[in-house]
Amino acid sequence: MIQFIDENEEGETWPQKAWEEVLLKFLSKSLDAIDDEHWTSLAGQSMTSQWPLYDGEERLPYKNFSYKCLGIILRKSTNKEFVESYLATLFTTVQHCNQLEREGAGVCVGYCASSHLDLTLQKLLDFTKLNINKKDSSYLNLFKSDRSLTEVANMKGTVSLCFGYIALFAPTDLITSRIETIIVKTLTPLFKGLKIPAIKVDLVSAVDLIAQSVAPDRLASSESRSKYVFSAREDLLWKLMAYLREAGNKPSKLKSAIFEAAASLIKLEPPMRDEDIASLLTQCITHVIASPPDDATELLQANCSEKLVEL
């Protein structure tokens, strides 16, 4: 920590994200050194007791970081009841309308899943079933206010990021058996009916995280997982392109997130056909710049195919 401060204190800007990573590692190593479950539980209690202090827009970055600290604590805990209780506390505390809180909660849940995968998945599934699936399927939706529908949409953002970070941080030898049967299966219906661009970004980011979690180079070190086939890729790419078509031609965070997620999906096994990649690239390019005439589109696709053959 001292070395990090010495190396960065005179810089023009403070590398806040890197500094937070250093602090999280320090917390993790401190819990390892203390190695006392009671002390770990007290740390969790103390952390969550401070959350009311972070209310207010200007203090949300502190709350985001505090959520991540709780994730480290839950990861180190061996007390199942403690983990379940504080996951429930997190889900009832997070303000789903705020992106910083959604992201912090997602990372917290992901850290927790690295040691308690099935328990964490079950708690998240229970939350999704109670707060999203049940409300989405209710005929009372016909009479819901825009505010109620927005609240459900915001919860979808939190849940999607939680699933994404669970996939990313879970042990590689365990996640492949759950990635499509549980995570993608639950995530896919959340795409339906979303109108809020920021929540769409969360879902797309979750797809990117999921794709990263089963990337061949990441699974290569696990037992015979280097050829894992992600069968949901085509459906997820289709959903990404549907979002892209809705996004229009103006620059946006959503479009940037879509391009990143698509790039991650392309890298997965099995290798995509050149013509499919060329078609995907054409769709992406035509939404970065104004759509060209049909003959120009054909030429663009042909050029993409030629470049892929060269590769």
Rank of each mutant, 00 (worst) to 15 (best):
N8D: 01
L24E: 05
L27R: 04
L27Q: 12
I34P: 10
I34E: 07
T40L: 12
S41Q: 15
S46C: 12
T48Q: 09
W51K: 11
E57D: 15
K68Y: 04
L74I: 01
K76R: 15
N79Y: 07
F82A: 05
F82N: 02
Y86T: 02
A88V: 13
H96Y: 15
N98I: 13
V107W: 07
V109F: 06
G110P: 01
D118H: 13
D126P: 09
L130A: 13
K134D: 03
K135L: 03
K135G: 00
D136W: 08
S138L: 01
Y139V: 12
Y139A: 09
L142Y: 00
L149E: 06
A153P: 03
N154T: 05
S160P: 15
G164Q: 07
I166E: 03
T172Q: 14
D173T: 15
S177L: 13
E180A: 11
K192I: 02
K192E: 02
K200W: 02
D202C: 12
V204Q: 02
I210E: 08
Q212P: 06
Q212V: 07
V214W: 06
S221K: 10
S231D: 06
S231Y: 04
A232W: 02
E234G: 12
L236F: 04
L236M: 07
K239R: 04
A247K: 00
P251G: 08
L254S: 02
K255L: 00
A263Q: 09
L268K: 05
E269K: 11
P270Q: 00
M272E: 07
E275R: 06
T286F: 02
D294F: 01
A296G: 11
T297G: 07
A302I: 09
A302S: 11
C304G: 06
S305M: 07
L308R: 08
V309K: 14
